[in-house]
Design a protein around this nucleic acid. Sequence first.
DNA 1: TATGAATGAGTATTCATTCAT
DNA 2: AATGAATGAATACTCATTCAT
Lengths: 194, 194, 194, 194
Amino acid sequence: MKGSNTKDQIIAEASKLFLDEGYEMISMRKIATKVGCSPTNLYRHFQNKEDILLVLLERGYSVFLSYIQQAIDQNKELEFRIKLKQALKSYVNFGLENKEYYQLMFIRNFEHFDRVVIGESDRMKGFNLLANLIQEGMEKGLVKGDIEVISQSLWGLIHGITSLLITFKNSFHWTNEQSLIDFHVDTYLKGLLK
Amino acid sequence: MKGSNTKDQIIAEASKLFLDEGYEMISMRKIATKVGCSPTNLYRHFQNKEDILLVLLERGYSVFLSYIQQAIDQNKELEFRIKLKQALKSYVNFGLENKEYYQLMFIRNFEHFDRVVIGESDRMKGFNLLANLIQEGMEKGLVKGDIEVISQSLWGLIHGITSLLITFKNSFHWTNEQSLIDFHVDTYLKGLLK
Amino acid sequence: MKGSNTKDQIIAEASKLFLDEGYEMISMRKIATKVGCSPTNLYRHFQNKEDILLVLLERGYSVFLSYIQQAIDQNKELEFRIKLKQALKSYVNFGLENKEYYQLMFIRNFEHFDRVVIGESDRMKGFNLLANLIQEGMEKGLVKGDIEVISQSLWGLIHGITSLLITFKNSFHWTNEQSLIDFHVDTYLKGLLK
Amino acid sequence: MKGSNTKDQIIAEASKLFLDEGYEMISMRKIATKVGCSPTNLYRHFQNKEDILLVLLERGYSVFLSYIQQAIDQNKELEFRIKLKQALKSYVNFGLENKEYYQLMFIRNFEHFDRVVIGESDRMKGFNLLANLIQEGMEKGLVKGDIEVISQSLWGLIHGITSLLITFKNSFHWTNEQSLIDFHVDTYLKGLLK
DNA sequence: TATGAATGAGTATTCATTCAT
DNA sequence: AATGAATGAATACTCATTCAT
């Protein structure tokens, strides 16, 4: 009828496997076995292994952007501090709710794959949404400093907590996730704003 | 000193290769070629490929701890804020000056390798040095809150900026590194400290 | 006429591909892509890949025989030397004007394909037309010697120049084709005929 | 001690297989099986499949040149006609005594393999030895015409009989090989000389 | 301290072909 | 008359590793 079911299955299994064991450790055979089809059949749906990753990344970026955009849209009319905080939390939540995507998009670096560079601009789009917010804060006199420095620092702030929670999710004793994130963002914003 | 020269060469070449192309992409043959010896010879010095990584991680943790410890020792007598800031900056500098180690220790996750778990306690030691500092700040009344939450947030803060600078060192236009780090830490500490 | 258009297209594309890259290098998928249909569809028109080759060879032999026969018919009443020369030139021209067929029929050897043996008798028919001519020459007292030896030598003569011109058409600097062939045949016939 | 025995074995088995079934039909596995070693081991001795072919061709060209050169050297002082005939027969004999080499060098065309082009110049060397002989004949007034045309025609003469005897060795009833070759060359030379 | 020879298991990928529609 | 989905078997090649020397 609509999209092939197998293709979706492949994406689902591949993203799980890629996160759990790493892209290079996963063979087409392993994916096929999980999906329950022949390795050959994977090539009906994707040009090659890299192509699976590419499609995965594209989906990831699209979901990512919708997270950020939605947070900004929903809090349009609210106070700047709240709007900014919600956007930052949205970023972290995207990561925690989509660990596979986050890892592939922001922790691993696939730029040596030529075709993956496409994704770069998508990563940029998300970054720019953040930068625009900061710009707004500066215009309102709530934020001071170099907009590039501030944006990059903010990215570091939220990437740090997100990636740690993903990478060491099992090997470190984390306090309650949401309080940690709240504290993290609040503390930084207390220093940044006004 | 003691260890053979070849062994050091192997570690040097392996760590470069592991960072540049990823642990899984590097074969024993590639390492041997770089070192200029036979693949077989690697096995005289290391049990297997995983063992090279293990030794590498051990060295990395040792260097890492010395960075943090030194920062704390050197600023023992200074104001708490400065001491803390220097410790945090030390962490970041360790990463930037030892990108290979940092990536293997904090960005990649090798916990599926049984023997690597040993390293966990070393990572913990570094974390505890930080936590002790916070403890000191709390005792002095300069910091308030849950010590675990604060330590983890602080780790997120500095891991974020460090890992971004390493992972996307070529594919993102960064502002001046040191000013960025200064701003990053200062802003957060402004919010954290009394 | 009768056969579907697709079947002709398949034969046309397949023979080009087989010559350019070799029978083994060409996959059903490549043929299908060139034709612009699905690989599956090839099997509606041919039993399998070998069958495509077989049909191709059959067509080739039929064209081949018509070349030789026509040369003989058209020069029936002329002097023997001219008749023979025209027949020989016809052979060469068949090759040069049908390089794909010539290569498959006379340069490659597909006798390990059971079904291809059928073609053998066709190759024989062409050979026999030549032998008959020689027979005629012997009866007229113009040619002397063992008819088998002469026929085989003649075949070698024209096969040599034809196959070289086809196989090394790009990698050797040939003089003018037709003068070369004329010289080739004339020189030999000068030695052969009375 | 001297050269690895396995390498020679590989070359021996590969050349047989390449002739019998064709380069493309032969897999590394098949070669390894014949040799009695693992497929992997082939890669210790050759970079890849193409490299086996390349080494084979190089050996072939070297043997080929020695055949021709020897014939010329040995008959240096003899009458031109005999010298030329011996050179031509040498060419044919090289083919018949080294069918695998001849097929790979003169019947198949591997020029789409970049590295094989090297061989081109070697093929040229053999051709030039022939051309030089003709040149000598022309200087002695025994041969008349365009030297290029004559050389190419001569090549066609001997390639034709050689390649037919190799390609259709089993599927055609040949008269006695040596008488056929003698007749073939003699007839042509009768037309060519004086 | 080092290496050349070797291998079993694995890699991504392509093959000719079939089947249900 | 044609196709999309699928596959088992094969392809060239690379892997980490071992063993005899």
